[in-house]
């Protein structure tokens, strides 16, 4: 039996970030926010309106924004930077590497419009490499929550984590199903459904699709264990190993390149500790393109059906 998940509305994860940041504005006087000309897109309006002294509009100058954020930590501030995922990572990789990660600065790099679901703007803006870029940096924490509530909770939680964090979220509305009061523990996987035949490990927008896949698999008589990995680094090794020990095969699902994503991290863990057949639901060495989010998720193989096919395929390899 698949556990039943319901939702009352679809909401965008970026609005969860905006709400979390607004909450921090009221509760943590050290939190400051910076934005590179995308306040509306990042949903930072409320924080800006309520905390004008602690908000920095930096213009279209992302490299400077990362440096300013690193400097603001010197004096005890907790800077949250906001721009699209592409401009939060690839464009400023060396700034993050030297001024934030290597310097051990308490900067929270908050990135919206990650992945294909940015939609019509096309491949220039649809970064699918950001998780890989960020997780390779020593001591960088990488978080990719799945819905509005989880993104809000993650935003609030990372203010209390001392050290650099990459927080990834997106533009489209997706089912808001996680409990509003669910505690967000960095590095702690969330068990969505206990099963015995296969482990589906999903992150971000693919989590709801994993739930949908689990429901359809249950109708076929397949018992899927579904894990929501919101923290890609540090990875919850124990939760994954415990599950895979039981199911003996795994499917990973993410809105990211296969190279460098969650699937890579899981495969690395399993190859060292518990070699296991694995299939990857991810973009296969390709850029995206213009289209609606749904069209793109279908074309690039990131849909519910793709998870089901991957499960059927991996179970044959047990």
């Amino acid at each position: 039996m698949m556990k039943k998940y319901t939702y009352t509305e679809k909401k965008d994860t970026r609005s969860g970030f905006g709400a979390g940041l607004q909450h921090l504005g009221k509760t943590n006087p050290n939190v400051v926010a910076l934005c590179a000309d995308l306040i509306g897109s990042l949903k930072m309006d409320a924080f800006k309106a309520e905390n004008p002294d602690r908000f920095f509009q930096v213009g279209i100058a992302e490299a400077n924004m990362i440096g300013l954020a690193a400097g603001l930590t010197i004096g005890g501030k907790i800077p949250f930077t906001g721009t699209f995922a592409n401009f939060s990572t690839g464009r400023v990789y060396d700034q993050i590497r030297q001024s934030v990660a290597y310097s051990g600065k308490n900067v929270k790099i908050c990135a919206s419009h990650a992945g294909l679901t940015l939609g019509e703007d096309g491949a220039t803006h649809q970064i699918l490499e950001d998780i890989g870029l960020m997780k390779m940096l020593p001591h960088m924490c990488v978080i990719n929550p799945c819905d509005y509530n989880q993104t809000k909770a993650a935003t609030i939680a990372i203010a209390d984590h001392h050290g650099p964090v990459y927080l990834r979220f997106g533009r489209p509305t997706v089912p808001n199903f996680t409990p509003a009061d669910q505690k967000f523990e960095i590095g702690k996987a969330i068990m969505l459904n206990e099963g015995t035949d296969v482990t589906i490990i999903a992150t971000g927008h693919l989590v709801w699709k994993a739930i949908e896949a689990g429901e359809q698999l249950a109708e076929q008589g397949i018992s899927a264990e579904i894990i929501n990995i919101h923290t890609i680094k540090p990875l919850d090794d124990d939760a994954i190993l415990k599950s895979v020990t039981k199911t003996k095969c795994v499917v990973t699902a993410e809105e990211h390149q296969m190279n460098g994503g969650l699937g890579d991290s899981v495969a690395q863990l399993l190859s060292r500790r518990l070699p296991t057949p694995q299939e990857f639901v991810a973009v296969n060495d390709s850029f995206g393109e213009s289209g609606t989010p749904d069209q793109l998720m279908t074309k690039y193989g990131l849909d519910t059906i793709n998870i089901i096919e991957a499960v059927n395929s991996v179970m044959k390899r047990k």
């Binding site: 490299a63 300013l68 005890g76 501030k77 030297q98 001024s99 290597y102």
Partner: peptide, 20 residues
């Protein structure tokens, strides 16, 4: 107070510290 070597980054950091 900051790593430097890859050039061009220190002015942004210094300004951030000045803002703090």
């Amino acid at each position: 107070r900051i790593a430097s070597g890859s050039l061009g980054q220190g002015m942004s950091v210094a300004i951030g510290a000045a803002l703090a």
